[in-house]
Design a binder for these strands. Structure first.
Length: 490
RNA sequence: GGCGCUAUCGUCUAGGGGUUAGGACGGAAGAUUCUCAAUCUUCAAACCCGGGUUCGAUUCCCGGUAGCGCUACCA
């Protein structure tokens, strides 16, 4: 039982037939947390035994996703495609002990089996035809060059069960298991064989994987037994579903870990969010859990048994929390990436200025992309004012005129501080008999292109005197969004 | 279809034979006034259904239903 395992060895064993999706990433994360918690070893193994469906690009993508998420492996990656000798030995052993047998049925004739079987009201299962061939005859045919797959001889009768660290006792009747294939006719191993042979060879103590493997487990337990090895602890983790509660797929938008990087999610936020999908920290703890807390708290016992829906808005919340908690120094390199991607030309590269401006804005960011998007005017002179913002606060030509005048006043202001700029604006508004708010909101749009931004006077000092003056003076050149529809008609 | 697993607010979940069923995200309302995507305050929101056990079930048992998984010479 889990308890306090000594030197546990766990693995994440993705099949490179697709990118690293959030489900796989969470499985990897749980393995990693478990290993770190018990000072064990976390290793990575690439299950590429199906050469027709595995590609090196996919392997790259998976490694990249793991690295980005900060999930580092201690051993590997091991590639199953390079460990075929191990599987061949295991198959030989099973054949020699009679635990497995050659099957000469051709793939094609097996293919219409399901349809045929259901038509006859039978279960679409391998009937064990070749199991009845005497071993000597089978060996002779095999040596004569006849193509043969290798099947496992599932015990007739009885049942096979295991104690799952998450689900408890699970048991299957052996009559439910068919004589599954261990090696294809080209002698390449299939999943069950290679996984078990590897897990034995790599001395894996705990198998933490998706709950979709629960039904596979009895077959593997049988294999452990037949190979004379002790079974590891199994811990199945419930699946992650889309908002419609169906299995996560491309239909649900981003499911690739890398896609979240592209969306401006910081890795720590995704990690924290993923950890909390199906796992509960101790009562009373905050949900914002950095690595050390995650590692300290993690336990297989606190993994839930029901599937979890991926909630994008909660991920976004984690992201805002992490972004605002980071010092600007940590944010800067991440943000520079976004500027590069968006082609943002900076107004200034002054370090202190960049850092203080990031500090001014980070509390309002939902994503790293905001720094190249709605915050763009702070960092660059090239930005498109938001039409809705123009419509909301800069429709009034009177306000526009006053803002130009205000710009002139600021041009003559010696002390361009938050206090002084505010005093000047309020005095000006009072003198003109307009509400300060009207000028403030208009100026915000003129300066940032947005209706939403930090306090105006903080904005002005962040922008600096000359840019503030310049943008205010240019206010009349901004389009009058409200008129555009009407003017098209006339 | 068969087998397996699961079932508490919209979502992630806590809890547990007697509770005002707790928290978080999201939502709503209010406050603030210089905007809100900030902040503060408040509110709404759940035990799948039916039997059984019991003085008492959301909790334990059984059945149903639903969802998910597996049912390949995929992993």
């Amino acid at each position: 039982m889990p308890g306090f395992p000594e030197n546990p060895r766990v693995r994440f064993a993705p099949s490179p037939t697709g990118y690293l999706h959030v489900g796989g990433a969470r499985t990897a994360l749980f393995n990693w947390l478990f290993a770190r918690h018990f000072a064990g070893v976390f290793l990575l193994r690439i299950e590429d035994t199906d050469v027709s469906r595995s590609t090196p690009e996919m392997v790259e993508g998976i490694l990249e996703g793991l690295q980005w998420l900060g999930i580092a492996w201690d051993e590997g990656p091991y590639y199953q495609s390079r460990r075929t000798e191990l599987y061949r030995l295991a198959v030989d052993k099973l054949i020699s002990t009679g635990a497995a047998y050659y099957c000469f049925c051709r793939k094609e004739e097996l293919e219409d089996r399901p349809a045929q079987a259901t038509g006859e009201g039978r279960l679409p299962r391998y009937q064990g035809t070749c199991r009845r061939i005497p071993a000597a005859e089978a060996l002779r045919r095999k040596q004569a060059g006849e193509a043969a797959a290798v099947r496992f001889a599932v015990p007739q009768g009885g049942s096979t069960g295991f104690e799952d660290a998450v689900f408890g006792k699970v048991e299957f009747s052996n009559s439910e298991l068919e004589d599954f294939v261990l090696a294809r006719s080209d002698s390449s191993p299939t999943y069950h064989l290679s996984a078990v042979a590897d897990d034995i060879d790599l001395r894996i103590t705990h198998i933490i994987r998706g709950a979709d493997h629960i039904s596979n487990t009895p077959k593997q337990v049988l294999l452990y037994n037949a190979l004379g090895a002790a079974t590891p602890v199994f811990a199945h983790v419930p699946l992650i579903l889309g908002a419609d509660k169906t299995r996560l797929s491309k239909r649900h938008g981003a499911t690739s870990v890398i896609a979240y990087r592209e969306e401006g999610i910081v890795p720590e936020a995704l990690r924290n969010f993923l950890a909390l999908l199906g796992w509960t920290p101790p009562a009373g703890s905050s949900e914002i859990l950095k690595d050390d807390a995650l590692i300290r708290f993690f336990s297989l016992e606190a993994i839930s048994r029901s599937n979890a829906v991926f909630d994008r808005s909660k991920l976004d919340w984690f992201n805002t929390e992490y972004i605002r908690s980071y010092p600007a120094e940590r944010l800067l390199p991440l943000i520079e990436e976004e500027w590069k991607k968006a082609g943002v030309k900076l107004r200034s590269r002054d370090g202190t200025w960049l850092l203080s401006t990031i500090d001014l804005l980070k509390g309002r960011a939902r994503s790293l992309k905001d720094f190249a998007g709605s915050f763009r005017a702070f960092f660059s002179d090239e930005f498109q004012p938001d039409p809705a913002a123009l419509d909301k606060f800069l429709k009034d030509t009177g306000v526009r005129k006053m803002l130009v005048e205000l710009g002139d006043r600021y041009g003559n202001l010696e002390d361009f501080s938050e206090q002084e700029t505010e005093r000047v604006l309020r005095d000006f508004a009072a003198a003109r008999g307009v509400k300060a708010g009207a000028l403030i909101n208009g100026a915000r749009v003129a300066l940032t292109g947005q209706a939403v931004a930090p306090s105006l006077f903080a904005v002005m000092t962040a922008l600096g005197k000359s840019t503030t003056v310049e943008r205010l003076r240019g206010v009349e050149q901004l389009p009058l969004e409200a008129l555009s529809l009407g003017s098209l008609k006339t």
